[in-house]
Design a binder for these strands. Structure first.
Lengths: 218, 218
DNA sequence: GAAAAAACTACGGAAATCCGTAATTGACAA
DNA sequence: TTGTCAATTACGGATTTCCGTAGTTTTTTC
């Protein structure tokens, strides 16, 4: 089987609300003779097409879209096309996001900041029967698996409460534990994130993706 | 003078280290028959070309590049081509970024998240002799001009230091003022951002774009 | 079923924060 | 020129954070 030939035969759906990204992705695919590309600026427009009988070999999707949560979209695609090859192109390196994507067994994860032809590599690997996760994903997961650096669930709960402006006393009340316990978790967070005070803690937590802006940690 | 004709005649330089953005921008320009586009993945590769005698009508540049600060690039372009039309395409909505861009009198500011053909609008406006700043820029500046909500320069300096994990005492030493002064600025920040403590202050400051989150993200 | 990790509790004390309130100086604008 | 505003300084006191150290209980994992 000629790989180059197989690649150019693929039907691809690109879902991204950013014009720039959508056009860029299409241009990169076109440079490898992948011309059968359908562009969608909203999640629902793709779902509508699928319900109307459309089928694609690859779905390149963004996680943040105005009309639908990316994870919901993944499940909607899978419901309509169980063997769908799903490639997630994102800017999120939060460990939660990655874990949720792996749990949903997406076929590839690449960052938008990566090299353009990484998308080609991803498609080729999937055609060979492999999954493709970019280098930074592997790195993030490696760090996360090192529990000496990665906060526990309980600690992340405290972290979230801190980010909401709660004091240790308030957090203790909300979590039904003593203030001492909260202080212990707080202490663990400091050492694990290498922070010197709350301000530093919050900055580092956001940098490392433990807190999303305005979001909930799951 | 036919505007459509003028547009398609333009020589454009696109500088962005992201493959996706560079290709996307080029594709959008091509859709309006702007085909004389040179792509640069680093700032210095453009500067080298300029030194070798190249000239462009429009420079579409990103602010964050691995090899050179965006503001430095702007000045290097202007030094080589004083009447250069510079369009900044960015993700930064921090108010001082915008202020610095306006101070350097760039011809257009657009966000990467915006509509694709906004870049066309920008070029057309510049050809008419106007500057073009996207809607969100106007909004950000409007909020910033409401001084009752917007921190002063001095307060922003303190805010930055806080985000670096510095204590009031350390900040006072660094800024050559008393601890009391720092506390006063800190207090003003709290009321202006509506924060209840440092953790909250940092979260809100990042949300509002007063602090950029350096490092890990993207 | 034992070892390891996570979760919880405790406490004393130093350091830093947060709060209210108030006053002075200099610059720039109506 | 008079008034507003940014920037500065001041202080006492309550609250909260931060640090070190140390122990118990529960849950997970091999």
């Amino acid at each position: 089987m000629d790989n180059q030939f197989a690649l150019s035969q693929m039907k691809v759906a690109v879902v991204d609300d950013h014009d720039l990204v959508r056009e860029g992705m299409t241009a990169i695919l076109a440079s490898r003779n992948v011309n059968n590309v359908a562009k969608f600026s909203t999640a629902m427009s793709l779902v509508d097409q699928l319900d109307a009988g459309a089928e694609f070999d690859f779905y390149i999707i963004d996680l943040e879209m105005p009309d639908l949560d990316g994870f919901v979209l993944i499940e909607m695609i899978r419901a309509r096309n169980p063997v769908a090859h799903i490639i997630v192109s994102t800017v999120h390196d939060e460990i939660w996001t990655l874990r949720k994507l792996l749990a949903r067994d997406v076929n590839a994860i690449i960052y938008k900041s990566g090299e353009g032809n990484e998308i080609i590599t991803a498609i080729e690997e999937i055609l060979k029967g492999n999954n493709y996760y970019c280098e930074d994903v592997h790195k993030a997961l490696k760090i996360a698996d090192d529990s000496s650096l990665y906060p526990s669930t309980r600690e992340l709960e405290v972290l979230y409460q801190i980010s909401q402006g709660k004091t240790s006393r308030e957090i203790a009340a909300a979590m039904f534990v003593t203030e001492n316990t909260v202080e212990a978790h707080r202490k663990a967070l400091f050492t694990k994130l290498g922070a010197v005070n709350v301000a530093d803690l919050i900055v580092k937590a956001i940098e490392k993706g433990y807190i999303k802006k305005g979001g909930v940690i799951r």
